[in-house]
Design a protein around this nucleic acid. Structure first.
Length: 555
RNA sequence: GGCCCGUUGGAGAAGCGGCUUAACUCACAUCCCUUUCACGGAUGCACUCACGCGUUCGAAUCGCGUACGGGUCACCA
């Protein structure tokens, strides 16, 4: 009569290594006390998800702050969903955010001693472990077709039993080795299932690093660990990989909580020490009054690329993400005036337990803060680089005259309370259009928002006066004194008090006069500091704009 | 449906049995500053912590129940 050894040999004849061999190959890491080994283990099924960045950021932060290791593992066991090249996209985008792995899979090749770091290249490892499991009678081949499984589920539904492949519903669980061998030899397709000895009526407890003690029903499902395509399922790959790669802390989404008992079950069966788990809250979004997970299909902001394309500074998103991870981060940032989240002491205990709603307003706020405190010399190259791929219109303007662009970018910047106009690089172009003569001409064609009460002739003469009287290269008070002179000449009040006391005696207040100038030069009733605008435009351009408008009003 | 996780303002949240007349930040509103906008400053924004019952001299804080929201029950991760 055949035994488990025979079965194991029949199933995996080429596997000569043992688990012990693997243990020797992947010895424990030599790290300081308390160092955490964490990882980011995405499936290469598309671009980086905002929630994934959040998870990666936290794993990275914990590893760095504990003096440990953060590595990258590519989980490409779902061949149907795998998108070619997306592994590289994931690594590249992570790098943009400075969440780079110390070791792991990289487009140019693996780095580190615990590889391969791509699951499809780890087949022999999984098979070695599974062969051992079969020898020990803790795994078995299952010959069910999808239809068989469907039939089992139907029966369970009819019996009001819990769905799943377990206990008496696990059809092939108790086949004899001879029967198994016979079917295999007959060419019947098979998968390998883990033989659970869990008891559904018992509980398994574990301590989650952020949630504390969690108690769940034991796993009693014989889950598939090796699929018919020869690749492992997530559950088994997680156990194997995180064991041999010596991960100490698993950071993953809270959707994994229910399957943790199954993972623990396998760790136990293999006699391996289970890692700690930290189940992270998932980032949500409000949709018709209901909270739901950020969805890549429905929500633009679910893809990290969205923020990159819009030109959010990576640190802005990172800061925002850190603020939802640890709400005291914001207080810390304000108190220390330190905008570098790397210096912040992150704490898993302080994480909130339910998923935060993604808040664009808050992201914009952080981004504005960050962009406002940066000086032109460091900001301008970033804007330029972003524009070179995401906004050719802006890029072309920057290249026309880079020092001119820098002056524009620098308006009301180098001061204690800088302007906070831009939350993202894409905000820059629309707000600075009027500085460019060709764009200005287009804006004029679209019509200028002058106050309707003015006669054309009046505007013409006011504009001409501004053109001939305003000084250049002087300080703002001097310049504004001239504005006041011209305004007075045309019947404006130059003090609020005068105007309020007797509004009918004046054409308007000094602010109204300034508005005319502003509209004429910027095509808008709102603009940054007018004096700075005028100095940047230069005498020639200012006079040209003023005079050409004046003459158009005289026709 | 079973099981699990969660529930403090529009959003992120602090709070861990008396010091809370519930911090702080964003958003929003009003006002001040001001040549516009932005910046900056001031003020307001939960008579109350989903609801109910209970424990206690005392509860947002502890317990139970209900409601609601989320997650999970694949040869997907």
């Amino acid at each position: 009569m055949a035994d488990y050894n025979d079965l194991a040999e029949l199933l995996f004849p080429d596997v000569k290594e043992t688990i012990d061999d693997l243990e020797k190959k992947y010895p424990p890491r030599n790290l300081v006390e308390g160092a955490q080994v964490t990882r980011f283990a995405p499936s290469p099924t598309g671009f980086l998800h905002t929630g994934s960045l959040f998870t990666a950021l936290i794993g990275h932060t914990i590893a760095k702050q504990s003096g440990g290791v953060f590595y990258f593992r590519l989980e490409d066991t779902d061949t149907k969903r795998t998108i070619e090249g997306s592994g590289k996209d994931l690594v590249d985008q992570l790098a943009v955010f400075g969440v780079s792995a110390d070791e792991g899979w990289f487009p140019e090749g693996d780095k580190g001693n615990y590889g391969p770091y791509r699951q499809s290249e780890r087949k022999q490892i999984y098979r070695t472990v599974i062969k051992e499991l079969i020898r020990r009678g803790r795994a078995y081949p299952d010959f069910c077709t999808p239809e068989d499984l469907e039939a089992i589920r139907k029966v369970q539904e009819a019996n009001k039993a819990l769905p799943g492949y377990y206990g008496k519903y696990a059809r092939d669980r108790n086949l004899t080795v001879d029967e198994q061998i016979e079917r295999i030899n007959a060419g019947t397709p098979w998968v390998i299932r883990y033989k659970s000895n869990g008891d559904h009526d018992k509980k398994t407890k574990f301590v989650d690093a952020i949630r504390g003690e969690i108690e769940l029903q034991d796993n009693d499902i014989d889950m598939v660990i090796l699929k018919s395509d020869g690749l492992p399922t997530y559950h088994f790959a997680h156990v194997c990989d995180d064991h041999f790669m010596h991960t100490t802390l698993i950071t993953r989404g809270e959707e994994w909580i229910p399957s943790t008992p199954a993972h623990l079950d396998m760790f136990r069966a293999l006699g391996w020490k289970a890692p700690k788990y930290a189940h992270l809250p998932v980032i949500m979004k409000l949709d018709h009054g209901n909270k739901r997970k950020l969805s890549k299909r429905k929500d633009a902001e679910a893809a990290v690329s969205y923020f990159l394309e819009a030109g959010y500074p990576p640190e802005g998103l990172l800061t925002y993400l850190m603020s939802i991870a640890n709400s005291n981060f914001e207080e810390w940032m304000i108190a220390t005036k330190d905008y570098d989240y790397h210096h912040f002491k992150f704490s898993m205990k302080k994480m909130s337990l339910d998923g935060a709603l993604f808040d664009m307003d808050k992201l914009n706020y952080f981004s504005k803060e960050l962009l406002a405190k940066e000086n032109v010399e460091s900001l301008e190259p970033k804007v330029k680089e972003w524009a070179s791929v995401h906004s050719l219109v802006l890029f072309e303007k920057i290249n026309r005259d880079e020092s001119y662009f820098k002056k524009i970018l620098n308006i009301e910047r180098e001061r204690k309370n800088p302007r906070k106009d831009y939350a993202k690089y894409s905000d820059i172009e629309p707000l600075t259009r009027f500085f460019y003569a060709d764009e200005y001409a287009k804006l004029v064609e679209q019509g200028l928002p002058f106050n309707e009460r003015y006669e054309k002739a009046f505007l013409a003469s006011l504009l001409k006066d501004f053109a001939s009287s305003l000084p250049f290269g002087v300080d703002e008070p001097t310049w504004f004194a001239s504005v006041k002179d011209v305004a007075t000449k045309h019947g404006y009040a130059i003090s609020n008090k005068d105007y309020k006391e007797n509004p009918d005696a004046f054409v308007g207040n000094i602010s109204d006069a300034a508005e005319v100038l502003r509209v004429a030069l910027t095509c808008s009733t709102q603009s940054p500091n007018l004096h700075e605008v005028i100095e940047i435009l230069g005498k020639e351009e200012v006079e040209k704009r003023l005079l050409s408008l004046a003459s158009s009003f005289e026709k």
